[in-house]
Design a binder for these strands. Sequence first.
DNA 1: CGGATTTGACCTTA
DNA 2: TAAGGTCAAATCCG
Length: 339
Amino acid sequence: MESNLSWEQNTLINELIQGMEVARKLKADLKTPYSVDTREMLVQKILSSYEKALLILNASASKSQTMSPTTVTSLPESMTSLDENPMRDGIDGGVKSDKGIKHDSKKRKTMTKWMDQIRVSSESGLEGSHEDGYNWRKYGQKDILGAKYPRSYYRCTFRNTQGCWATKQVQRSDEDPTIFDITYRGKHTCSQGSNAALAPKSPDEKEKPSSYNSYIHHAKQPQETVTMLRNNLTVMTDNLGNEEISHPFTFPSTSFGCMTQENDSFLPLAVDNDPFMNSLFQTHLLSSTIPQSNYFPSPSFQMNEFDWVYNMPHSESDITEIISTNTSATNSPIPELKF
DNA sequence: CGGATTTGACCTTA
DNA sequence: TAAGGTCAAATCCG
């Protein structure tokens, strides 16, 4: 997000707005013969939002540091195309005749063009071993300085067969071992990229979270949709260098979201005609190139988050998206993204 | 036996 | 030079 506001600030605002929005919904619902369940769910959402807002405040306060300015914001389009593809030539051949072969450092650099960060919590018990819809093959593991748990490196299984260069890194959170930070890099160009959801197995349970909620695609029943509400999706554009921002957000229940993209701040906020929201919005989100999207989508929001992620309509070049998801027990709002 | 994982070494980057 | 990222031989597993 290239706005003046930090990610936390935007998130905070978003949470508050979300809470309001849900409260309004609830209010409306009270007049109708909705089920108690629905109301409870709404109430939970509200609580969840405010809870998160508080957490954000705490986190921000304690860390009182702002994100560093963008470092990678604009890679030329040409680089983008490079990124999509191999950063190293010759690997596919499997023959790296000798270690002497130099990797093209520039290519590698550009490879980090965009990345998603997904946070998953498996605490809520609603997971078996879900997958994120893609087949990954582990290719490395590394102890990270200062981190309790090692970081695992995965690449798309179809890298060689289909030239899919998507990779991801999985690292268990220090503070909360039930949470995994997953950083995705590159976009799937393999066939599974389009039907990620069909994905089969979950190979390695050791480092992988027991579930990737991001993968709640295709909810078939309305109830399932409700289940989906537990998933939160936050996408925000951030500076590439800022992966570090991840730590403070380890919400037990979550939904916070904002998404920005490059120059376009893109905050799915319900600003509506609600005066308060408007003021809030204007106060804090001035830079709004922000469309008034229908945040809080209909209950039928069923987008596969991965599809969403990987099929971002924009060129994925110079952007970094950070998606935070969380499977948590508390119902939390829907990803406020809808295209 | 073939594909996936493990793991130490190597490479890149800051 | 240290830390992070990747390679690839060895090993595991179905």
